[in-house]
Design a protein around this nucleic acid. Structure first.
Lengths: 93, 93
DNA sequence: ATATTAGTTAAGTATAAACTTAAGCATTGA
DNA sequence: TCAATGCTTAAGTTTATACTTAACTAATAT
């Protein structure tokens, strides 16, 4: 028996609290990495890697502006989460 | 810098596709482990461990009936997911 | 009593995830 | 042109996760 090959999906992407916090911050509008990273007590590469994960599932897009890289929220993939959880809402109502 | 101590949360619990599938199955009503495990190509202990994770975050409850253990869906913790994702819905509308 | 069934617990393993520091690459500014 | 800034990429480490098989516990059936 083999485990499925690891590839990022949306559920996994949002399972990390730092990544959720990044998404939350991006709701204020697109921002460069340094600014996004500001409240987190971890290195910039760590944030960069989290952004990479979010990018891979399509939750963020980026745009180079000078030496900055502006990241922008791309919420569409969250529809999958929303749809999934919606099927359970009847159960707590 | 230290990482937060690992403790299961709802986002993490639903990040695993097998656990989501278990929850989906439980929507049909409470079921014993063997029956729940039936469609999955993995050992019973593996399923048992997934159920343990779901139990720890409160997504399932269990009841002994004879030598069976009936697991039941407990969807309330999914409210956290629903609430979180709801904050993003404005962005795709 | 003993065997069977239903499930958990224990112990071990492989892979993945989340970090770190160091090095590299553009872009801007002096 | 050289230094600084903004960020990524590379490489390595630690911890967590998802499994496995083997052993155990409890309840039922023979």
């Amino acid at each position: 028996m083999s485990r499925p090959t690891a590839s990022v999906d949306t559920f996994q992407a949002i399972s990390d609290p730092t990544r959720r916090a990044i998404l939350d911050r991006l709701r204020a509008g697109e921002q460069p990495v340094k600014q996004l990273a500001e409240p987190f007590e971890m290195s910039l590469p760590a944030i960069s890697q989290h952004l990479q994960v979010l990018y891979e599932v399509g939750l963020v897009s980026q745009q180079r502006v000078g030496r900055q890289r502006l990241y922008r929220l791309n919420p569409e993939p969250l529809k999958e989460i929303s749809d999934w959880v919606a099927d359970y809402e009847q159960f707590w109502q």
